[in-house]
């Protein structure tokens, strides 16, 4: 339902962030993330930065698999 694009924030001004994904740039709204800073990686959807990204998927997968039994609560 919600195509997300991981991208890097390069500029921020008045609730608008410029994001860069592999060289493709676009202005998006940053109103959903209070403490955004240039250099942060965000998930972008429909012209909005919806969340910060705090790591890569492979490292996360390692953590999930290592903690498999504990995660299931």
């Amino acid at each position: 339902m919600c195509v997300g694009l991981p991208a890097k924030v390069t500029e921020l001004k008045d609730g608008v962030a410029v994001i860069n994904a592999g060289g493709a740039e676009r202005e998006v709204s940053s109103e959903m993330i209070a403490d955004l800073a240039p250099g942060d990686y965000v998930m972008v959807h429909a012209g909005m930065a919806i969340a910060k990204i705090t790591g890569d998927d492979e490292a996360q997968a390692e953590d999930v698999m290592d903690g498999l039994e504990d995660l299931l609560s």
Binding site: V3, L5, A21, G22, G23, A24, R26, V44
Partner: peptide
Amino acid sequence: DETVRGVCDMLG
């Protein structure tokens, strides 16, 4: 190309 990929990812 990396940038073409970025544009494509943005638009699905």
